[in-house]
Design a protein around this nucleic acid. Structure first.
Length: 816
DNA sequence: ATACATACC
DNA sequence: TACTGGTATGTAT
């Protein structure tokens, strides 16, 4: 039975084109009528044709999946079931209901702002955006089926009286800043997801709040109304733009056990419960911005997100922190509501007869055979109502891009100049953030909506217009050539830059240490497996230490700079251009049938680009004095650092302190540095361990999955193993994150023990570098042990120099 | 490393 | 007339 597979093309296709009515404010619409209008308006357009094509591709994927499903044997299924149960048990064990996570989301944000600022709009269906694309719509308009991501011209067909207001980002950003100030009062580490949305961890706030006096929980109405006797609730509503007719409404604080009641007047006292705290936050948002927000309260992020949608607009919903409540809540939840499951996943799951989370749970064995490991793990977590209980710190950006849609562009000169413009914009943005990246990607969309990306990675990071354009132009040229004599008929072009080398400085090596300094957590905040890890006491402690150490280093640097004001120092290499001469792609750049523009090209760029060398490969920057040391020899560099350290401590203590004190000052620095490293590494390694074994320390989830041998997976969809695995081996091969040596054990405890030893070894090294004769943790079994714990980054290839460390390993400990 | 697809706002 | 733009991540090669 081909149950679920779209019986007709039309029907299946609707899922892609049709109105998405699972969002708030869309209940009880005339769906069929709306869909008919959407389809009729779209039909025959290039966009429509392309969507059809993409839908076919999804259908093919589904067909393939169904074939795969048909080949599954009982045996396989049973085995898979066992596997799923194992993982499931481990996940269950890791369930943490102790956190109170809140997801806040402004109601129809852009539209609400525009309505607030233009009362004329209040009673009208309106949307923000353009005839080509809408960003959001108000609740009036939603009744007509008008919604975000719908082109304005279609929206107009649905609702001819629709008023479309152009975007005004600066305004939204300003409002966003206002609400973020409020968020920070409840969770200083809140995570903004966009201008109008954020996750907060209320746990700590609530603890504090229990001891707060009423006065601290009292908040005033911003505008004193003429009729002060009115009930607070009513007043709140009057302040808000008319977004809701039949909205659940936040304000009527249910007279909960703690609901301290709102006295009539110009203020309200909020209780100490979660609900009260969240209600208070929303109240303050409304008072401050005259805009309403909705919120979800749950024990993890995934659930909080779903909850915030539940009583939208201007409402909130709390899911109690019990396993039972969570499981009940999940049962009938449509999979599409879950963050991360979009149109396509939904359609594939539907094809398997899965539309709700309970189905998901029932079909896990099957899903584990048909989907990638990451995918089915996600499904499994969702089906158990699990999600992240830790709100990760805002991570550093990984890419930056700019793209533009326009009327057909086919002339080469115009394409080139547009490309240049994009590069200019991008370079400007890069400059603002002081970024440099190694990979430049060109994105093209032709008039048939077909998208292409072409990328090139340079040996060194770049940032300037000329550097970026030099690459983008070559990529574009190549595409033009490949298509010729036909022209490229473009409707969109974009340029992206990624693979950032470093933030403030250009040295890749510098990144870790500077990032560490700034974030107080080094790069580990970037690591993918960080997400579930709660910050440890240890890393908190680091902050203080590292500041004292690095602050002194900074002071030292300033001193030196002052002293050497006249000397060359900075200038020479610092801003040297950075394109390597190997950059130019081997494509036949000249000699072709291109208009002169292509070969004419800014030769200065070329010249500039090809003559400049990778400066970062020539020098290292001292973490103490922050000056460049012109050497590639790490021993030399380490000697320099040692000198700097002793200089620094001597200078600091100069005259005022005795020799012994100075001695101890030096020692203190060293110890601090060691401690910083120790803690940081511990933190990192902990997290690396948790990649193998993600759930808070114990019980192996990933381990199980690592052990999993691909069961079915003939063609694609092979389970990705964490480590390359000898095909015969009976288990995973663990690689120590510290010494990078392969540990051939299947026992996680043994492996963890090894890692701990390795870490301790490092600390010992750090503390008594001169005296220590290495105390090697005996690798459980190692392939090429020199006995030294020389670390090597698993992912980012370090410059060779770091690898080829001599006996002194100060540096590789320092950086990374 | 590159290309493409999916997802989110 | 007209179907975005910015970022991240997963999957396949």
């Amino acid at each position: 039975m081909e149950n679920g597979v779209a019986s007709t093309k039309e029907e299946g296709f609707l899922s892609r084109m049709a109105l998405n009515d699972n969002k708030a404010g869309m209940e009880g619409l005339d769906r069929d009528k709306i869909n008919k209008i959407i389809m009729e308006t779209s039909k025959g357009s290039k966009f429509y044709e392309n969507e059809l094509k993409r839908d076919q591709q999804v259908n093919q994927r589904i067909t393939k999946m169904m074939l795969q499903k048909a080949r599954i044997t009982e045996q396989q299924l049973k085995k898979a079931q066992a596997q799923v149960e194992k993982v499931s048990t481990a996940l269950e064990k890791s369930r943490d209901l102790s956190r109170v996570i809140v997801h806040v989301d402004m109601d129809a944000f852009y539209a609400a702002v525009e309505m607030r600022d233009c009362p004329e709009l209040k009673d009208k269906p309106m949307a923000v955006g353009s005839m080509s694309m809408l960003s959001t719509s108000n609740y009036h308009a939603r009744k007509y089926g008008v919604r975000a991501a719908m082109p304005g011209f279609i929206a107009k067909k649905l609702c001819p009286s629709l008023v479309i207001v152009p975007l005004n980002f600066d305004k939204y950003r300003a409002v966003s800043n206002e609400i973020r100030e409020i968020f920070a009062d409840y969770d200083p580490n809140f995570q903004p997801m966009s201008l109008d949305e954020a996750y907060l961890d209320f746990t700590d706030h609530l603890e504090q709040r229990q001891h707060w006096p009423e006065s601290t929980r009292t908040h005033h109405f911003h505008e004193k109304k003429a009729e002060p006797s009115q009930e607070a609730v009513t007043e709140v509503r009057e302040l808000s733009p008319v977004l809701f007719e039949d909205s659940p409404g936040s304000s009527p604080s249910p007279v909960g056990p703690e609901g301290v009641h709102a006295p009539a007047g110009d203020f309200e006292v909020f209780g100490t419960s979660v609900e009260e705290a969240v209600r208070e936050m929303r109240f303050r948002i409304e008072q401050k911005t005259m805009l309403t927000a909705s919120a979800g309260i749950a024990p993890n992020m995934m659930l909080a997100k779903v909850c915030s949608d539940k009583n939208k607009p201007n409402g909130q919903y709390r899911l109690p922190s019990t396993r039972e409540a969570v499981m009940d809540f999940i049962q009938n939840l449509p999979v599409r509501k879950v963050c991360g499951i979009g149109k396509v996943s939904e359609k594939m799951l539907n094809a398997l007869g899965i539309s709700t989370c309970s189905h998901l749970g029932q079909q896990m064995a099957l899903l584990s055979l048909l989907f990638s490991e990451t995918a089915w793990h996600h499904f499994l977590e969702v089906s158990l109502g699990l999600g992240s209980t830790y709100i990760p710190r805002h991570e550093e950006r990984k890419s930056m891009s700019t793209e533009r849609t326009f009327k057909e562009l086919s002339k080469v000169e115009e394409q080139l100049s547009l490309c240049r413009e994009l590069c200019e914009d991008l370079a400007e943005d890069m400059k603002k953030e002081g970024l440099k990246g190694k990979t430049v990607t060109l994105k093209l969309k032709n008039v048939n909506f077909e998208v292409k990306t072409r990328a090139m990675t340079l040996p060194c990071a770049v940032a300037t217009v000329d550097e970026i354009f030099a690459v983008a132009k070559d990529l574009l040229k190549t595409e033009i050539e490949n298509e010729s004599p036909q022209p490229l008929r473009l409707r969109l072009m974009g340029v992206r830059i990624s693979a950032f080398a470093s933030l403030d400085d250009k040295k890749p090596l510098q990144k870790s240490i500077v990032g560490f300094l700034q974030s107080g957590k080094a790069d580990c905040s970037n690591l993918p497996w960080r997400s579930k890890q709660r910050q440890t006491e240890g890393s908190q402690a680091t902050v203080g230490l590292q500041q004292s150490f690095f602050q002194r280093a900074h002071v030292r640097r300033l001193q030196l700079e002052a002293a050497n004001a006249a000397t060359k120092n900075e200038g020479s290499g610092e801003n040297a251009p950075v394109i390597a001469n190997t950059r130019t792609p081997a494509t036949a750049s000249e000699n072709n049938h291109l208009p002169p523009d292509l070969s004419e090209n800014p030769s200065p760029v070329q010249a500039h680009a090809s003559t400049s060398a990778c400066e970062e490969s020539e020098t290292l920057t001292c973490p103490v004095c922050f000056r460049k040391v012109e050497t590639t020899d790490l021993n030399v560099f380490n000697t320099h650092i040692d000198q700097c350290l002793s200089n620094a401590s001597q200078k600091t203590n100069n005259g005022t302190e005795s020799d012994t004190e100075s001695e101890s000052g030096l020692k203190k620095d060293r110890e601090e540095r060691a401690a910083v490293n120790k803690l940081r590494r511990r933190h990192e390694a902990q997290e690396k361990k948790s990649k193998v074994n993600p759930q808070k320390g114990q019980s192996s989830v990933k381990k199980d999955s690592v052990q999993k041998v691909s069961l079915i997976k003939d063609d694609n969809k092979t389970a990705t193993l964490q480590e390359p695995q000898p095909s015969n081996s009976k288990g995973p091969v663990f690689v120590c994150p510290v010494c990078q040596l392969t540990q051939e054990t299947h026992d996680l405890a043994v492996f963890n023990h090894h890692v701990d030893l390795c870490l301790n070894q490092e600390v010992l090294h750090e503390l008594g570098r001169q005296t220590s004769s290495s105390i090697n943790p005996s690798p459980v079994k190692n392939s090429k042990s020199t006995g030294k714990c020389v670390r090597d980054t698993p992912s980012s290839p370090p410059s060779k120099k770091v690898k080829s460390l001599g006996p002194c390993n100060t540096i590789d400990k320092f950086f990374r």
